[in-house]
Each structure stands twice: as structure tokens, then as C-alpha cells.
């Protein structure tokens, strides 16, 4: 099974892999969510959604169904 942002644990960091550009809104790309950039899951809202991320230095929140579309490689410490 592929790993996505939705699978990350709180505090975990990962590198964004290639994703299907048609599904991801352009705005997210413009905020720095691009292949090769690092992403860290900072907080999970009550009831498990949305997710609060640090992407490439930008702090933003996205819904879990968007997060499921963004494949990542975990950085193992």
C-alpha cells in the first residue's frame, strides 16, 4: 500500500513524491506542496480531520481526502 500524508503520525516528516496533478488543486501547489519538498504533520484536528501541515516552510491545513491523494516517502530518523 502506498503511503500518503494521511498515513503520517503526528510530528512525522516526509518527502512529497510525484502525484496525479489533476486531482490536487493548483492553490495547494502554489503554497509549496510540490514533489521533492518536505512535509511535516503538525496537528490533527479533533475528529481526525483536517490535518495541519508544515509544507516547505508554509503552515497550512488541508482535508483528509486531499491528504490521501498526496503520496510521500517517510523520513526515518
Amino acid at each position: 500500500m502506498k503511503t500518503t500524508i494521511a498515513n503520517l503520525r503526528k510530528g512525522e516528516k516526509a518527502i512529497i513524491k510525484d502525484f496525479d496533478a489533476d486531482i490536487i488543486p493548483l492553490k495547494l501547489l502554489e503554497m509549496g506542496c510540490l514533489p521533492g519538498n518536505t512535509v511535516q504533520l503538525l496537528q490533527i484536528a479533533p475528529f481526525g480531520d483536517p490535518l495541519y501541515l508544515n509544507v516547505n516552510g508554509s503552515h497550512l491545513a488541508i482535508r483528509i481526502e486531499t491528504a490521501r491523494e498526496i503520496e510521500v516517502d517517510c523520513i526515518t530518523k
Partner: peptide
Amino acid sequence: KTFFVVEMPN
């Protein structure tokens, strides 16, 4: 199509 992005400012 639903999507949602919100910036969390300092």
C-alpha cells in the same frame, strides 16, 4: 469537487 486549503498564520 471539494477541496480546502487554509493557511495557519503565526
